[in-house]
């Protein structure tokens, strides 16, 4: 009896779990670009969105649930529930040296890599003075 009640409560909880997780990320700087790498298990390419607004990059990813249940359904019951399945969201302020027009991203095996090229460095230039 008790077990049954617990199972039902957990199922209800799972159904309404609108938790959004902040994914872990690596930040790597190269001479010509930055790379950000995010762990997004369960996310698919069409579920990921990257937007930049006023120098803040927002990453959002939704995790599939429909048609591929990530937990028990019907008469099934939880045995252990150590992590929650939810969407991902993270915001990062990016430097002004980043050329966000040329930003690219790829998702493979639940890992998103965002490449942020630096703007072409303004190099010191010697200006010749033409003889008159």
């Amino acid at each position: 009896m008790n077990t049954n009640t617990t199972a039902i409560q957990q199922r209800e909880h799972a159904k309404h779990a609108e938790v959004t997780y902040r994914p872990g990320a690596d930040f790597i700087e190269f001479s010509d670009r930055y790379e950000m790498v995010f762990d997004l298990p369960g996310a698919t390419a069409d579920s990921v969105s990257l937007t930049i607004d006023e120098g803040v990059l927002t990453l959002e990813a939704s995790v599939r649930r429909d048609g591929d249940e990530r937990g028990p359904s019907g008469d099934n019951t939880w045995i252990a529930r150590e992590f929650g399945v939810g969407d991902f969201r993270r915001r990062v302020r990016i430097g002004e040296d980043i050329d966000d027009e040329r930003m690219t991203a790829s998702l493979t095996e639940g890992v998103l890599t965002v490449t942020l090229p630096k703007r072409a460095a303004r190099q010191a230039r010697r200006i010749e003075i033409n003889p008159s």
């Binding site: 938790v19 959004t20 997780y21 902040r22 969201r89 993270r90 302020r93």
Partner: peptide, 9 residues
């Protein structure tokens, strides 16, 4: 440098 909060994993 991150903006906002969240549950880290």
């Amino acid at each position: 440098e991150s903006v906002g909060q969240g549950v880290a994993r």
